[in-house]
Nucleic acid binder design. Structure first.
Lengths: 232, 232
DNA sequence: TTCTTATTTCACTATCTAGCGAGTTAATGA
DNA sequence: TCATTAACTCGCTAGATAGTGAAATAAGAA
């Protein structure tokens, strides 16, 4: 948890300076929140990491909760819109006839690519969102707020890909998908130890390679059964 | 978050009294930790809920971290041993020829039954373990410490059920399973809102009905593909 | 009873916490 | 150039925090 000393350059306009400082604060907060959670981090911890007085965080973000929200919102908007776009494209490309696996690839691979290519900041955000997702009360509300549209878009595609299935099955299937995804993003290191180093927590590519196919088969299994229960 | 006033009965031996107080403290801590996490709860919060002076918690558990560990360990031991026993029984009952779905049913249904039948305390523990599972650093270590044996027992069965598959695929499959399970245990209420009330976070029975089948199909999908890649 | 031990509260400390308001420095724009 | 505004630091406060050690209380044993 050592301080990252970026030389705070001198010749910048106020607007540039403000933007840069804001980003630095968000990055530092993101790093720390992703590791210790909202309550496990103090404003002083964050300020120290930026190399700035702690009251500056109040100046920029009013209070701790608003800082946390800003950290989460910054990248949530990006991933949400990005996936929405890809789902729309996929829908068009298949002429309104999506498959389960195709829709899941669009949804999951798009997101995983972001964490693969996005650098350290995106990986920290990923771990943070995993914690938020499993936090009752305010955590779930944050997820609702930022991701309901794109998730419902995915679910719309899945319903069309499985027209005879019960709606509950689709929702529970999505629940399994997102649970698995969130644990992936958490990068806890558990799978590394469990597998004796064969698998690695941070290996999003390995997950990308398997996840959509795995989950698609799951959907077909629980939806097919429901279909046969009805007809039989 | 109102205080639960159990009348602290008078005529008990010291040993009984100690056991009872210990349980009350663990229950209160479990309740609060499951909702606000380790850092979101103070010893005073817990003490208030039990109706006891906050320094009594130091007397019983030395410090906050040890209290947290005790909360987690209490039920982790129960669920771990219980599942281990059921997996052993299943292994014997199938004459050493397990199926993926059978092993998953033994592993998952046994656990879900505990949360269905176990009352409020078990549900709180479940939510707590979901948070621990997605917490890097110490969270993953706690999971390793308590669950490695039973998880490796399950994985052993899965390997035998899928003898030609790559080991990594089994481990990643397990990773998906546990991610989905943990989100279920978190009971965040997200699925309720998302589905417009059609599904409910606390409906472990609905999950039990679908999960093993869903995941088994997933395993077969990623392992089958790997097999055909090799042979083809 | 009385001595001993376990349980529980109490008073206190050292440290940390978020945040306010005034002061300082530096950029901006008239 | 100079007044204004923005960016940032400093000193401070009021309250919370975990934990210590001594005292009070109750239970158990003699």
């Amino acid at each position: 948890m050592s301080t990252v000393e970026k030389p705070r350059s001198k010749r910048l306009s106020k607007a540039e300076r403000r933007a840069e400082t804001t980003e630095q604060i968000l990055d530092a907060a993101e790093y720390l929140f992703s590791r210790h959670g909202l309550y496990g981090v103090t404003l002083k911890d964050v300020a120290k990491r930026v190399g700035v007085h702690h009251t500056l965080l109040n100046y920029y973000f009013d209070d701790k909760q608003k800082l946390f929200d800003a950290v989460f919102a910054r990248r949530a908007a990006v991933t949400s819109e990005r996936r929405m776009k890809v789902l729309n494209d996929y829908d068009k490309a298949t002429g309104g006839k999506p498959t389960v696996e195709g829709a899941l690839h669009a949804f999951l691979d798009t997101d995983l690519d972001l964490y693969i290519e996005g650098g350290e900041g995106w990986k920290n955000y990923a771990a943070l969102s995993a914690q938020v997702a499993n936090t009752p009360e305010w955590g779930a509300k944050m997820m609702d707020q930022h991701f309901d549209p794109v998730v419902l878009r995915l679910i719309g595609l899945l319903k069309r890909a499985l027209p005879d299935s019960a709606e509950e099955d689709i929702f529970w299937g999505y629940h399994f998908v997102t649970g698995a995804l969130m644990l992936t993003l958490a990068r806890t290191g558990r799978i590394d130890k469990l597998s004796g180093g064969l698998c690695q927590s941070g290996d999003y590519a390995a997950v990308k390679q398997r996840m959509a196919r795995f989950m698609a088969a799951g959907f077909h299994a629980i939806c097919a059964e429901r279909r046969s229960e009805r007809s039989g």
